[in-house]
Simulated assay, not measured.
Amino acid sequence: MGVVVSLDDKKNNTGSVQPLIDLTKADMGRVNELILSKAGSDVEMIPEVANHLISSGGKRLRPMITLAAARMFGYRGDGHVKLATSVEFMHTATLLHDDVVDESDLRRGKSTARMIWGNQASVLVGDFLLGQAFKMMVDVGSLEALDVLATSASVIAEGEVMQLAAAKNLETTEDEYLAVIKAKTAALFSAAAEVGPIIASASRTDRQALRSYGLNLGLAFQLVDDALDYGGNAKDLGKNTGDDFREGKITLPVVLTYRRGTSEERLFWRDALENGANDDKGLEKAKGLMTRYGALGDTIQRARHFGGIARDALAPLDKSPQKDALLEVIDFCISRVN
């Protein structure tokens, strides 16, 4: 049984990340050099594990947002490069930790670090990257930027624990799930966007605008990922489709379908996610139920809602190439399901 995400009000403007890539190309070159430098270590396994994930083909959206947000407000130093690298290291560390917690075998079509080097190495190299990230934050010399990124690191960890506590819990509510992804995913997007205006000495209003933009973009991004896991393809998702189902993850499409279903259908979800009856046949049934109850389309509608808030957050800011590029990113993130 196939599944089609219902997008009746699909827009012609699908957005693109290319303007952001073009605007930040020179600075990202410096970020990439710094990544290679700071991921180095005399302990041979550390650069091996770090480079395995760093070179795996992600778009590095978060550090590009940091670079663009700083340039938007006229920043001319080099602190944004160190902060962008810190953001990428924080993201990489969370992926290493995530794959251990989720017992994931593949990421972006490649074996996860834990499958090659083991869980212990993955966790410890993630810790190494976090340490390097904080050293670079200190080098920048902005206590406010350090505070924002350090706070986001704590919030992300809280989100991981919240997700662990909610694992396989089908009584999870939509509000509870949104709280998890706000901490686990959106917090780093928010921090990545906010530190740009901070080091550019922008006004508190401008700083709040970028914080709101990043937070709501992160929520939209994660909700689209949730829908793609059941209604997309591996290329768009960066991992195998159906992984959330196989790992017993509670995501918004599951929450909505479970609550809208019959008692018999709820028994299916319990058997699949709580008892591990999550083979390919089970996945196809899950997709069919999501189609029946409109859960994927509603998940995308919620993503569009948060995307709209992100767009509104930037509306009062002066027009600039960076602002236009960041607005395009919103459409790009949501258009992945089109």
Score class of each variant (00 low, 15 high):
residue 308 G to H: 12
residue 300 I to Q: 01
residue 315 A to L: 13
residue 273 L to Y: 03
residue 315 A to T: 15
residue 273 L to D: 06
residue 307 G to A: 08
residue 292 R to Q: 15
residue 307 G to H: 05
residue 277 A to F: 11
residue 300 I to L: 15
residue 303 A to Y: 03
residue 283 L to D: 03
residue 305 H to L: 09
residue 276 G to A: 03
residue 276 G to E: 06
residue 278 N to D: 11
residue 302 R to T: 13
residue 311 R to V: 08
residue 300 I to C: 07
residue 269 W to G: 00
residue 284 E to N: 13
residue 311 R to S: 14
residue 313 A to I: 13
residue 305 H to D: 13
residue 314 L to M: 10
residue 298 D to C: 04
residue 293 Y to A: 08
residue 311 R to T: 14
residue 291 T to M: 09
residue 279 D to R: 06
residue 285 K to D: 03
residue 287 K to F: 02
residue 277 A to G: 03
residue 295 A to N: 07
residue 289 L to K: 07
residue 310 A to C: 10
residue 282 G to T: 12
residue 315 A to E: 15
residue 285 K to N: 09
residue 289 L to N: 07
residue 271 D to K: 11
residue 285 K to G: 00
residue 283 L to C: 01
residue 307 G to N: 03
residue 293 Y to E: 11
residue 282 G to H: 09
residue 271 D to W: 00
residue 273 L to R: 04
residue 272 A to R: 01
residue 273 L to C: 04
residue 313 A to T: 12
residue 312 D to T: 15
residue 269 W to E: 07
residue 313 A to W: 11
residue 273 L to K: 05
residue 306 F to K: 06
residue 285 K to T: 14
residue 291 T to R: 08
residue 284 E to R: 14
residue 302 R to D: 06
residue 288 G to V: 03
residue 269 W to M: 12
residue 279 D to K: 05
residue 315 A to M: 12
residue 315 A to H: 12
residue 287 K to Y: 01
residue 311 R to L: 15
residue 270 R to M: 04
residue 306 F to Q: 07
residue 282 G to F: 06
residue 288 G to A: 06
residue 307 G to Q: 04
residue 303 A to L: 05
residue 272 A to K: 01
residue 281 K to H: 05
residue 280 D to N: 09
residue 303 A to V: 08
residue 303 A to I: 08
residue 298 D to F: 01
residue 305 H to M: 08
residue 295 A to W: 08
residue 301 Q to D: 14
residue 306 F to P: 04
residue 302 R to H: 02
residue 297 G to I: 13
residue 314 L to C: 11
residue 313 A to R: 08
residue 275 N to V: 01
residue 313 A to H: 09
residue 286 A to Y: 09
residue 279 D to S: 04
residue 307 G to K: 04
residue 306 F to E: 13
residue 293 Y to N: 10
residue 306 F to S: 09
residue 302 R to W: 00
residue 274 E to G: 01
residue 271 D to F: 00
residue 292 R to Y: 00
residue 312 D to N: 13
residue 286 A to F: 11
residue 302 R to G: 01
residue 303 A to H: 02
residue 309 I to A: 05
residue 300 I to V: 15
residue 290 M to P: 05
residue 286 A to M: 10
residue 313 A to L: 10
residue 300 I to S: 03
residue 279 D to L: 04
residue 314 L to F: 09
residue 293 Y to V: 11
residue 284 E to T: 14
residue 310 A to M: 08
residue 295 A to D: 06
residue 272 A to Q: 03
residue 284 E to A: 15
